[in-house]
Simulated assay, not measured.
Amino acid sequence: MSPRIVKLKVLDARIPTTNSRKMEVLTEYNNRIKGYKGEKSLEFYLDPLIQSKDYHVFHEIRLLSGKYYFQIDFLILCHKFALALEVKKRSRDWYFDEFNQAYLLFDGAKEKIQNPVAQAKLQSKKLKQWLDEHQCEEVPIHYLFVNSHEKSKITCEDGNDQFKNMCNSEALIDKIELIEKFYKEEKLTRQDVRKIKRLLLTKHTPDDPDILKYFNFTPKDLLPGVQCPKCDSLPMKYHYGVWTCLHCKEKSKTAHIKAIEDYFLLIKPSITNSELRHFLQIDSIKSANNILKSLNLPYIGNRKGRVYYRPTTPICKRDHSEIAKWQIKLRSGK
């Protein structure tokens, strides 16, 4: 799941219902989680390629071309070609008219939407340009729109010439085999494929925005406090090392971990004792200090000037060797 989706979910939980833009956050989260689920459901059909040594499958590869980034839902690479997939999971049927316009059908009505075949074609052109910029000019690039909803169907009107670039998920492997049969010989050497694979992984930049800035929020717009792991209420009350939900009376000794991770995701990747106390809604400097020490976060500075930093992996999954490496990097200024 992309960092953007994770941040949207956390942001939605911490924006009060009285905020007029809360629905905007929730709508974007719902749209993106639908897209993620559609891509996730395609993994079943891509599994033969994932298990094969002849294919390399990249999910949500995001690359910079010129001034702008472009992202491909799935990119398939082999010795003969590259294939860009645009994946959509909609519960309505698809309809493409003779002018290559796309519609969703519902109860006899048509809703015009962006053409996913055109989107796939654009992404393939951007990929071609990107590969040319990196001296990989000989890669044949194909594109497909894949409908990943099992109950929706695709209909093309006579005269539409895009039908060859679309399919349902269960027909994806057949489409790929047809493309493969088109080439009588391999276009890329093993060394070429290794070079492209290395380039893609090195240049990939995950979609990880400053989500507060994206929606024009500030930290003051967020609901502070520790969220109840049972009923999601905010805030829980802290007393002698135990968090208690004021709504459902659930008790927890570790509920603050998610709250601190929320802070790192939404506000900034560092935190002080004072900032922790404000965000967790506790008064005691000593209690805040004990919480920070118990998490073994990497830090710089001493006593009042100490600043703790977000680790590279979730707090609950880190080990002491990683913490030691972070300490060395922070103290050396790297």
Rank of each mutant, 00 (worst) to 15 (best):
P209A: 09
P209V: 12
P209D: 12
P209K: 13
P209M: 10
D210M: 00
D210R: 01
D210P: 00
D210Q: 00
I211Y: 07
I211A: 11
I211N: 14
I211T: 12
L212R: 00
L212A: 03
L212S: 02
K213Y: 02
K213R: 06
K213D: 00
K213T: 03
Y214R: 09
Y214G: 08
Y214Q: 14
F215Q: 10
F215D: 07
F215T: 13
N216V: 05
N216K: 15
N216R: 08
F217Y: 06
F217R: 00
F217N: 03
T218N: 11
T218R: 10
T218Q: 08
T218I: 11
T218K: 11
T218M: 08
T218P: 13
P219T: 08
K220N: 07
K220E: 10
K220T: 06
D221A: 00
D221K: 00
D221N: 00
D221E: 01
D221L: 03
L222C: 05
L222K: 04
L222W: 04
L222E: 01
L223Y: 03
L223A: 06
P224D: 08
P224L: 11
P224T: 14
P224A: 13
P224E: 07
G225S: 07
V226D: 05
Q227D: 02
Q227W: 02
Q227A: 12
Q227T: 07
C228D: 12
C228E: 12
C228K: 11
C228S: 12
P229L: 11
P229Y: 10
K230R: 14
K230S: 14
C231L: 15
D232E: 15
D232Y: 13
S233F: 10
S233I: 05
S233V: 03
S233C: 10
L234T: 07
L234D: 07
L234Y: 05
L234P: 04
L234C: 04
P235G: 13
P235N: 13
M236W: 08
M236G: 07
M236P: 07
M236Q: 11
M236H: 05
K237M: 14
K237H: 14
K237I: 15
Y238H: 13
H239P: 04
H239F: 01
H239C: 03
Y240M: 12
Y240S: 12
Y240D: 11
Y240L: 12
Y240A: 08
G241T: 02
G241A: 01
G241S: 01
G241D: 00
